[in-house]
Design a protein around this nucleic acid. Structure first.
Lengths: 130, 130
DNA sequence: TGCTGTGTTATAGTTAACTATAACAGTAAA
DNA sequence: TTTACTGTTATAGTTAACTATAACACAGCA
């Protein structure tokens, strides 16, 4: 049903990324509680410690506050903090490599960015480098 | 000096990806020998077994042929085989996730395409979702 | 108080990735 | 043959990620 887990990345980081995505998408707002460690562990058939590790990462980043006995809650300013940090990280760390790959494969970055997830255009199959 | 290794991915797969990139870029052509296992291991301060594992992957993909005592050589048709396979993999497996991230961060195509690794443009810092 | 839900810590075991060290096996050239 | 490269296999140890199981600590509510 769900695409579940990606083999390229440790689960705890994928968990962290999901929460980040939910904050950016506005699904989780400041003050909202995160789904409990045990709940998530049960739902995704994962060890509670793995979930905790992902959540701890969020605490370390100042995005989430942990209150023993109560739960974990989104901090105020979490979203704007993320918009700065994640943009920075993406643009300087990830995009350059991605862009390189796109060019190497002879794909058009423009086309990919404008397509809303539609099928890729099937242009030249062979295009030997000069 | 070099960006060396990326922590998100096992070294042997990064090695595999580098060779793939060299093939796509035409740095390594059909029939060319790969740099020897021991050479690479020494140059990158990595265990020979790790290099071998990366190379074996290429053999399994039919991109490279191993000749005991001689070396490892790029197969004929390796590049065109890659152009098909890697494009497919990128467009269907990797790009959707990337595209999602870009939209989530509210990044624009312009921003990404114009920057050649320069500083990101500082547009709207806050842009709450509806 | 007792119960149930939170986060947290402790202990211990498995697997994949990586490492060190060494030996084996084939090719080619001096 | 000897030397010096190749790829390959064997043995064994470390670390990070993940797992199972259990207990501890705190909050809130009946």
């Amino acid at each position: 049903m769900d695409r579940e887990w990606n083999d390229n990345q440790p689960i705890y980081r994928q968990l962290r990324d999901r929460v980040v995505a939910m904050i950016l998408d506005g699904v989780l707002k400041e003050g909202d509680p995160l789904p409990s460690v045990r709940t998530v562990a049960a739902e995704y058939l994962v060890n509670p410690l793995t979930v905790l590790k992902g959540y701890q990462q969020l605490v370390d980043e100042g995005l989430v506050e942990s209150r023993r006995g109560r739960g974990m809650f989104i901090n105020v300013g979490a979203r704007s903090l993320l918009l700065k940090g994640e943009r920075q990280k993406f643009v300087t760390d990830e995009w350059p490599r991605i862009h390189e790959t796109i060019q190497r494969l002879g794909l058009s970055a423009e086309e990919l960015l404008n397509n809303d997830g539609a099928a890729p255009s099937k242009t030249d199959e062979e295009k030997p480098k000069p």
